[in-house]
């Protein structure tokens, strides 16, 4: 963090004369600045064990690559799945694992909420003037998670080059936007499922069925799971907007199950809605924690 001295010191709050706009912006950015500070410290802490960090990054990368291998094997045997060829299948896989990978990198640590509550470190977070959500999410931030994101993005690139798509700037922008929505949806799911631990101790693993389970589900064209599951991951837990709808959008393909085509454009709205939901659930959980002390 060589730029420490250049940056505006957050303590030097804009004076009265600066107008409310700058103050509002500073306030809005504050959680992100705090997150960056905390994450950077964790990165430096992780760097104290370079061998472990290297091995873990390698492990994560190898894990993704073996999964890619599995996708290739599966499509190799089946030819096509739900009308998707191997590269189109890789596109779906890469969209899912990059979205989950990025969300995991920034928010995955919230799954350790129960641990913080048990050990009392959550109380220590509550007496700091920083959102406890930011602190929990930044906890043990580690660059090893790039070991998942980078290969996923590389596979995404390879898949995009090899699928039959007519590219336009609009489509690129839409792809970027849907990917961002995917990351937000995954992060929100992570937060929501972690909040269960405010209410039920030892429920961490149940959350995994939603987070990692969601990732496993979205790695393949979800039409193969049948209509009921597709409907529930569209309208109940909107996992369909992580990889499936963006893939339909990029490939410009009609929905194999005949679901409405406008759905593929609603990703950003769904993401915003789900994030609002996550914020609400977090607040409720936090209030419950502070009013029960459990």
């Amino acid at each position: 963090m060589a730029d420490t001295h250049r940056r505006i010191v957050p303590g030097d709050e804009p004076g009265e004369g600066d107008g409310g706009a700058r103050l509002a912006v500073t306030k809005l950015l504050r959680p992100f600045l705090d997150y960056r500070r905390l994450a950077w410290l964790w990165v430096r802490a992780a760097a104290q064990y370079p061998l472990s960090l290297a091995l873990m990054s390698l492990a994560v990368t190898t894990g993704v690559l073996t999964q890619v291998g599995a996708v290739v094997i599966v499509f190799g045997h089946a030819g096509t799945l739900a009308g998707f060829t191997v590269y189109e299948g890789l596109l779906v896989f890469a969209l899912a694992s990059s979205a989950f990978g990025i969300a995991d990198m920034f928010a995955g640590s919230v799954e350790r909420l129960g641990h913080h509550v048990r050990t009392g470190s959550f109380d220590a977070m509550l007496i700091r003037p920083v959102s406890p959500l930011v602190q929990v999410a930044a906890d043990e931030f580690s660059p090893r998670r790039l070991g998942k994101v980078v290969p996923a993005l590389v596979v995404l690139g390879i898949a995009l080059v090899n699928v039959d798509v007519e590219w336009s700037y609009l489509k690129m922008a839409l792809l970027a936007l849907t990917m961002l929505s995917g990351v937000l949806i995954c992060s929100a799911i992570w937060v929501i499922s972690a909040c269960v631990q405010f209410f039920v101790a030892g429920a961490r693993e149940a959350a995994n069925s939603l987070t990692y389970g969601g990732q496993a589900l979205t790695e393949y064209p979800i039409a193969i799971y049948g209509e009921e599951i597709v409907r529930s991951v569209t309208y109940v837990v909107p996992l369909a907007f992580v990889s499936w709808q963006p893939a339909l959008l990029v490939l410009d393909r009609p929905d194999p199950l005949g679901m409405p085509e406008y759905l593929r454009h609603t990703g950003p709205a769904v993401a915003v809605l789900l994030c609002a939901c996550a914020a609400l659930v977090w607040r409720t959980g936090l209030r419950h924690y502070r009013s029960t002390g459990s």
């Binding site: 010191v9 957050p10 303590g11 030097d12 709050e13 600045l33 705090d34 500070r37 905390l38 410290l41 430096r44 802490a45 104290q48 064990y49 050990t119 009392g120 470190s121 220590a124 700091r128 003037p129 920083v130």
Partner: peptide, 25 residues
């Protein structure tokens, strides 16, 4: 229970405190 960063020099934890509490430099 310590709130300091286990693996980092004490100085770093103290510097973080400054930012979290927004103490002018």
């Amino acid at each position: 229970r310590t709130t300091l960063w286990w693996d980092l020099p004490l100085r770093d934890s103290l510097a973080l405190t400054r930012h979290l509490y927004r103490v002018p430099g």
